[in-house]
């Protein structure tokens, strides 16, 4: 008996689940569209925001008393890292523009040719004719 011929009930269940997933999902989505669900979800989010605020404030004080960084401190570090990334991105753009400028000058013979700069392709391509495509 080959392995394929062995009846694997778990695999069969998985295959049934995969095939019927859309119906189950549609049913659940329909339930979530119910007004009671959306009201409950709205309430849950509002309460979540409120408890998040209380918990964050309390935790910040606690962490501060332990001389440990709070979430706000971590976010500050994240923001500073993001600003450094922005600056690096700006430098990348600037270097590319300077190289492009050098290439333009090299074309007029004013500056040495930058051999690393990729050659610009010509923009003359035409769509294939019906016969050739």
């Amino acid at each position: 008996m080959s392995e394929d011929e062995i009846i694997d009930p778990i695999r069969l269940w998985r295959e049934w689940m995969i095939k019927s997933e859309k119906q189950w999902s549609d049913h659940l989505t329909e339930l979530m569209g119910d007004e009671r669900f959306s009201k409950g979800m709205g309430r849950y989010i509002q309460e979540g925001l409120h408890s998040h605020r209380i918990f964050s404030d309390g935790m910040a004080q606690y962490l501060s008393s332990l001389n440990l960084p709070s979430r706000a401190d971590v976010l500050d570090v994240g923001d500073r890292l993001g600003q450094i990334e922005d600056t690096l991105a700006g430098l990348q753009v600037e270097i590319r523009e300077q190289r492009a400028q050098l290439t333009r000058l090299a074309n007029t013979g004013v500056a040495p040719v930058d051999t690393d700069q990729p050659k610009r392709p010509s923009r003359t391509k035409q769509p294939p004719t019906k016969a050739s495509s």
Partner: peptide, 13 residues
């Protein structure tokens, strides 16, 4: 939420 079980079905697949 638009297709809550799709991810689980993907894992089974």
């Amino acid at each position: 939420a638009l297709r809550p079980l799709q991810k689980s079905a993907g894992q089974l697949n």
